[in-house]
Structure formats: C-alpha cells, structure tokens
C-alpha cells in the first residue's frame, strides 16, 4: 500500500505548497504503515528534485516527457492514474491549485475514488478515514468521511509544516503514454509574471484596496512587499478598475490566500474580501477609518493615513535585513 503525492512545480522548482503535500504524504504513510511515493511531471534537475527528499519522501517517480512540459490537467490526470494503480496507492495527495483541482475530479473517476478538496490537517483514521476540510470559503470547516477504498485529497495551505530532513532521493524515470484525446487543449500562449513571488505560495502578502486612490500610488504596496519578501494582492474593485491584474485579486471570487502574514492597506474588509484571507495566521490592517470592518478580523491595526504610515513602514522594513 502506498501514499502517492503529486509534486507540482513552477519555473523548474517544486512549489512550497507541494513540499507541504510531500511532508503530509510522509506523515500519512507512517500513520497507515505504508510507503510514500512522489511523482513529478515535466523537466526538473536532480537538484530541484532533492527538495522532495528534504520534505520527507525519498522515492521519486519522474515523468520527463517533452509533450508534458507544460502543465495540463487532462494528460497529467492520466499519468497520475496509471502511476497510482502501478504503486497500489490508497491515498493520492495533491496541493490545492487550479491545475490540481482540474486533475483531481478526473482522477477521482479514473480511480473510482472518494475525494475531498481543501483538507486542512492529517486525517483521523481511528474509525474510517475522516478529513477536515475548509468550507464556505474559509468561514467554517466540515469533517467528511471518505468511504471508497482509494481516497484523493487536495490540501489547503499549512495543512502540515514542511519537514526539514536530510534524506537523499532515488529517482526513477518513467515513460507513460497518454491518450491523444488528453491533448485536445492546445496552449497557444502563456503570460506569466516571472520572478515574482506567487500569491498563493507566499508566506507574506501585502495587499492594497481602493483607499490607495489610484494605480500611481501602488509603489507603496510593491515597495513594502519587496522589503518584506512578500507577494502583492488587491481587492476586487482594484482589479475591476484595472489598477492591478485580475490574478492579484483576493477574496471570495478571487484568489484565496493563507499566508503567515497578510497586510491590508486601504481595504475596508468586506465579508467577500475576508473570505479570501481569513485563514491567514496574522492579519495587519492599515486604514484611516477606525470603524472599518477589517479591524475586527485583524491581529494588529494602525488607524491612520496610508500615505503617511506606509512610507515609514517601508523604511523600517528595509532596516530588517
């Protein structure tokens, strides 16, 4: 019996959310007296793959097919299904991402598996197989029992902390052919900001709202983010007005983030915005209106004018290094 984890990468490196999933796989395999196996698809150096060993799994299956270099849900689902069967996997783990959501549903059918997405901690296996998952966009949790023999879980951020081990990996190269039908979607162009810290992966997020008055003031957000090593986000009206790109918009209808630290500047804290950030460990709110609802969800607050406060914060943050 094994626990199979799919480690997703970005720009040739294994994503942090995947390393959490790898550590989750190692811990779960131990609980279930099984073996943890990681799969990567696409081209990775052995150095990039060594991060998987550090996170706790030593057996790595590498499918380095040129056709699969770009992440695509359909062929990836076929590859993972074949590997899951070959490895006799009873649990398949994926980080939560737009790619993995699209893989997971197809995989559930292929493996005749029960599935839970957005799982927040290790399962309770004292009776049956029960997982805790986030529901109502972070406003609550549900305990769900998965009743099929094979289970698929996608993991919320911080479901476990990534381990820091020193184990060497053994990499096995695999060739797996995918049906032509899986290649029906032809990617013609990819637009991706390179070098930026991905919002969903970031430990710290600095986010700006309509209180910043216009895109010309966004240096306040980006400079603070840079000084803190953070990703940048925004509220929905900000992306609706094209001050910032859509993929930065955080909330109910946007990206859900779960960083250690979320700093909100000039954002009122509407319930739909909070839905995307309420699983952050610490929330800092900077707003000139003491009655802004965001303060109710905040751990630290500054009631003040962002244009006065943030430059001083940037100075202080720069001195951290």
């Amino acid at each position: 019996m094994s626990v199979l984890v799919f480690a997703e990468g970005s720009e040739g490196q294994i994503k942090n959310s995947s390393l959490e999933a790898v550590s989750y796989a190692a811990l779960l395999a131990e609980k279930l007296n099984g073996k943890a196996v990681a799969t990567v698809i696409g081209s990775y150096t052995n150095e990039a793959l060594s991060a998987i060993g550090k996170a706790g799994v030593t057996k790595v299956l590498h499918v380095a097919d040129e056709k699969l270099a770009k992440p695509m849900a359909m062929p990836y689902a076929s590859v993972l299904a074949e590997i899951a069967q070959r490895e006799n996997a009873e649990v398949v783990l994926l980080p939560r991402s737009s790619l993995c959501d699209s893989i997971a549903g197809r995989l559930a059918k292929k493996l005749d598996a029960s599935i839970a997405t957005g799982v927040t901690e290790l399962p309770d296996i004292s009776s049956g197989f029960r997982v805790k998952k986030s529901i109502y966009t972070g406003k609550a949790y549900a305990w769900i029992e998965l009743t099929s023999k094979v289970k698929i879980l996608t993991l919320a951020k911080n479901a476990v902390a990534p381990m820091q081990k020193d184990s060497a990996i053994s990499v096995e190269q695999l060739q797996i052919s995918v049906p032509d039908g899986d290649m029906a979607a032809r990617i013609t162009q990819t637009e991706k900001a390179t070098g930026d810290i991905l919002l969903t992966e970031a430990r710290i997020v600095v986010s700006g709202g309509r209180g910043l008055k216009g895109p010309e003031n966004w240096h306040l957000v980006t400079e603070l983010a840079k000084a803190l090593g953070a990703a940048t986000g925004c509220s929905k009206p900000v992306s609706d007005m094209n001050w910032r790109p859509h993929h930065e918009h955080v909330g109910q209808t946007g990206v859900k983030v779960s960083p250690d630290l979320y700093i909100a500047i000039g954002i009122s804290g509407a319930i739909q915005h909070l839905a995307g950030v309420n699983t952050s460990k610490y929330i800092v709110v900077i707003n000139n209106d003491a009655d802004a609802p965001f303060f109710k969800a905040a751990d630290y607050g500054i009631v003040g004018d962002a244009f006065q406060v943030v430059p001083k914060l940037i100075e202080a943050a720069k001195k951290l290094k």
Partner: peptide
C-alpha cells in the same frame, strides 16, 4: 462516496 459528519467554526479572533 463521502459522508459529511459534522461542522466546526474557526476559533474566535482575539482583540486587535
């Protein structure tokens, strides 16, 4: 192939 058993609310936030 799943059963929802129970629900939980997140712990209340401390004061800001």
């Amino acid at each position: 192939n799943t059963q929802t058993l129970s629900y939980e609310l997140p712990p209340a936030k401390g004061a800001c």
